[in-house]
């Protein structure tokens, strides 16, 4: 699973810490997701999509 959290975060001009605060997780969790070390729960994915104002599949894609 790859994701574009870093890109979406840059578009919104958010730091990892600010995004973490907005979705209610630790900065460590955002960092692990950006590094591809953690696949979030559906709840967290939906929260991220809401913050980034896009669909979940625009942020997370299955790798070929």
């Amino acid at each position: 699973m790859k994701n574009s959290i870093k890109v979406e975060r840059a578009k919104k001009d958010l730091t990892q810490a600010k995004l973490a605060e907005l979705v209610g997780v630790s900065r460590q969790t955002i960092n692990a997701m950006e590094l591809g070390k953690y696949v979030p729960s559906t709840t967290l994915a939906l929260k991220l999509a809401k913050i980034f104002e896009c669909r979940v599949e625009d942020i997370f894609q299955l790798e070929e």
Partner: peptide, 9 residues
């Protein structure tokens, strides 16, 4: 300190 779904995993 930082308890969330990632720390749960």
């Amino acid at each position: 300190k930082e308890e969330d779904e990632f720390s749960y995993q």
